[in-house]
């Protein structure tokens, strides 16, 4: 990241900020989309984060930490979008109709569907840590610094996210077993 551009943007240079926006927007959108699992919400989070970053960049003390700083703003924008969306979103669970017919490919698809469902059930702050760790590949200490939370909190969020996914998988498996077991041959 070009430190000079950040300094110029801090002093109110919109063109410099636009260059920075083009440098970081792909990464920000990819992260938002993976946290929120919804393209429209991710777009809103991206836009709000960029506008807020523009407003607050004069307060940025360390220009070298611009990327971490703007990712933090994005994660908070994701929290806001998630909260807004919650009142409009019904929690729909799709039960399997038939068992897999082509084992390998179907298992992958089934796993992805299960992951999608399970991930959506996680609290958004756990999703954020999960995405930053597994998608951006950031170590937990760096995530903690980025989100300004204690390292232990970042660790426990990742732990609970992983456990939540596993529990959801097991619950899904149990329901499928009941559904398939009760279905007449």
């Amino acid at each position: 990241m070009d430190r000079d551009l950040v300094e110029q943007a801090r002093r109110g240079d919109r063109e410099a900020f636009a260059v920075l926006v083009h440098q970081v927007s792909d990464s920000l959108y990819a992260v938002a989309q993976r946290i929120l699992r919804d393209p429209a919400l991710a777009e809103d989070a991206l836009q709000n984060a960029l506008v807020l970053a523009w407003r607050r960049i004069p307060h940025l003390r360390e220009p070298d930490r611009f990327e971490a700083w703007i990712h933090r703003i994005l994660v908070h924008a994701c929290y806001d979008e998630s909260q807004r969306a919650r009142q409009w979103t019904a929690n729909i669970r799709v039960l399997p109709v038939d068992g897999p017919t082509t084992p390998d490919a179907s298992i992958v698809i089934a796993d992805r569907d299960e992951l999608e469902r399970a991930f959506r059930r996680l609290p958004v702050d756990q999703r954020a840590v999960f995405v930053l760790h597994h998608y951006l590949g950031l170590p937990l200490v760096e995530i903690a610094e980025m989100l300004e939370i204690p390292a232990g909190t970042a660790r426990s969020r990742l732990h609970y996210a992983t456990r939540g996914l596993r529990d959801a998988f097991e619950a899904d498996a149990a329901i499928e077993a009941v559904v398939q077991g009760g279905r007449p041959a």
Binding site: G12, R14, F17, A18, V21, H22, S25, Y29, E43, L46, Q47, L50, V51, W54, R55, R56, I57, P58, H59
Partner: peptide, 15 residues
């Protein structure tokens, strides 16, 4: 989405 954000920034003052 990026263009829309930049458009909003045009009329947004910095703190």
């Amino acid at each position: 989405a990026v263009d829309a954000a930049l458009l909003r920034i045009e009329s947004t003052p910095q703190e």
